[in-house]
């Protein structure tokens, strides 16, 4: 287990970002389908999907507290992480695999993404957009790694070791040969951005992005 030290504020904010994702993901998930939520925390999303979509859900979670909370709610969750555990999941085991606000914290995002597409018919991946103007501006203006409201940890404390921008992620999707079925982008306050905007602009003003991918 590589337990990483996580700033509690960071955790709380991550959870807020995740909660924003929940509603959108819930609308994407087919009733009765098989769903794997990687980094499922205390099982909020799985419980929601089980309640509203009667899914057959499974989770992966690193923290003991998260796993215990899930188990007590009657959810099925394996203690582990995306980097080391996904290779043991069989091909096509799930209809939808969810990686919410986590890919930037994995050691090998490309391998993780490939596993998501192998295990699930469809992958939903959301991440903080490092191309956001606030981050760019902060780096230009102060010459330091940005510490923002949505990314509050200092560079030496952050569990986020592989930041990317929306453009970077689109490149990675192309590299692993996946098809993009849908994209959503959100402002810092969580409100959705119209996708009619050009990609360069989204990459500048979205603080978070969510991709729905298929093999």
């Amino acid at each position: 287990m590589n337990q990483q030290t996580v700033n509690p504020d960071q955790l709380a904010l991550d959870t807020a970002a995740k909660r924003r994702d929940f509603r959108i993901i819930a609308n994407l998930v087919t009733p009765g389908s098989r769903v794997l939520d990687i980094g499922c925390g205390d099982g909020g999303l799985l419980a929601l999907l089980q309640r509203e979509k009667q899914i057959d859900g499974r989770g992966i979670e690193l923290s003991q507290a998260g796993v215990n909370a899930c188990v007590a709610r009657g959810l099925f969750v394996v203690q582990g992480d995306a980097d080391s555990d996904l290779e043991n999941y069989p091909d096509n085991g799930f209809d939808t695999v969810i990686l919410s606000q986590t890919i930037q914290a994995t050691r090998n995002p490309k391998t993780v993404l490939e596993h998501l597409l192998r295990i699930g018919e469809r992958a939903i991946v959301s991440f903080p957009n490092f191309g956001h103007w606030h981050i760019r501006g902060s780096l230009i203006a102060f010459g330091r790694m940005p510490v923002t409201k949505s990314l509050p940890a200092t560079w030496y404390e952050t569990p986020n070791i592989h930041f990317c921008t929306i453009h970077d992620f689109i490149d990675l999707v192309g590299e692993v040969g996946a098809k993009t079925e849908g994209i959503a982008a959100f402002k810092a306050d969580g409100s959705p951005l119209p996708l009619s905007r050009p990609a360069w602009l989204l990459n500048l003003i979205a603080s978070e992005a969510m991709f729905v991918l298929r093999r």
Binding site: Q64, F76, V78, Q79, Y89
Partner: peptide
């Protein structure tokens, strides 16, 4: 113990796994 969990996952069983520190 993890081998058991992986086998259960591969079999599509309902499984939780806890490694206690």
């Amino acid at each position: 113990n993890r081998d058991i969990v992986h086998a259960l996952n591969a079999a599509g069983a309902h499984v939780s796994f806890v490694e206690i520190d």
